[in-house]
């Protein structure tokens, strides 16, 4: 096992990289590299080995107080245990969905859960409108109420194929198949090179053997 395990205790929520590698598209080395990143992110404000919402916001926007609906939703989905923090295992499993080699099905499901703001199992027209308004609020794009309403209605009606007033998982899947660019943001090409970005751990484990 080498001296790595005896060096210092791992943070709360630390999980065996071999287990995480088996459950995700990452290799063991990549999981170890992600641990380097995790340690950095989880100690940026509170050094407790857990990523708090403010630390997540700080990393994304360089501003701990920057509120953003979508970043909030991503944090909530990463926080699988719903205890207000992201543990290492949660971090790796969730980032796995963003891996270029992760399944399209997982990416489609993740995006659906993200947009299902009130977690009813459906994306409703009100939720879609709320998200469009949030996007407009954070961008410099200005659209009239009429135009916003038209965009929301048109998109919603196209996605709600059975016309029951809500978008279910199957309708969402079909809509994404029609417009694949909708889940472009569910892939981070960077994750393929994660060991190059955080090589310190990998280098240190190689010399141990």
């Amino acid at each position: 096992m080498g001296c790595y395990h005896s060096k210092k205790p791992k943070s709360q929520g630390y999980e065996d990289p071999t287990v995480l590698a088996a459950e995700t598209p990452f290799t063991v080395s990549e999981v170890e590299a992600l641990y380097e990143l995790f340690k950095k992110l989880s100690s940026s404000i509170i050094n407790d080995g857990l990523i708090h919402r403010e630390e997540f916001q700080l990393a994304l926007f360089r501003n701990r107080n920057m509120k953003n609906l979508f970043a909030d939703r991503i944090f909530d989905l990463f926080d699988v245990k719903r205890n207000g923090v992201i543990e290492f295992g949660e971090f790796v499993r969730s980032l796995g969905i963003f891996h270029p080699n992760a399944s399209i099905k997982d990416k489609i499901t993740f995006a659906f859960r993200l947009y299902d703001l009130r977690q009813t199992g459906f994306i409703e027209q009100e939720e879609l409108k709320e998200m469009v308004l949030a996007l407009l609020h954070e961008s410099e794009l200005t659209l009239s109420d009429d135009v916003i309403e038209t965009i929301v209605e048109k998109t919603f009606n196209e996605a709600d194929m059975n016309g029951d007033g809500k978008i279910d998982q199957e309708e969402w899947r079909e809509f994404v198949m029609k417009y694949p660019s909708l889940i472009k943001n569910m892939t981070l090409p960077y994750l393929k090179d994660i060991t190059m970005a955080f090589p310190s751990f990998v280098a240190s484990t190689e010399v141990e053997d």
């Binding site: 994304l60 360089r62 947009y115 949030a134 996007l135 965009i151 996605a159 909708l182 889940i183 943001n185």
Partner: peptide, 25 residues
Amino acid sequence: KPVSMNAFELISRSPGFSLENLFER
């Protein structure tokens, strides 16, 4: 034309999805 925009396409471009920023050193 703005009315031809896909609402999901629009929201998918939010900076809130900039997870690549997590990797900036």
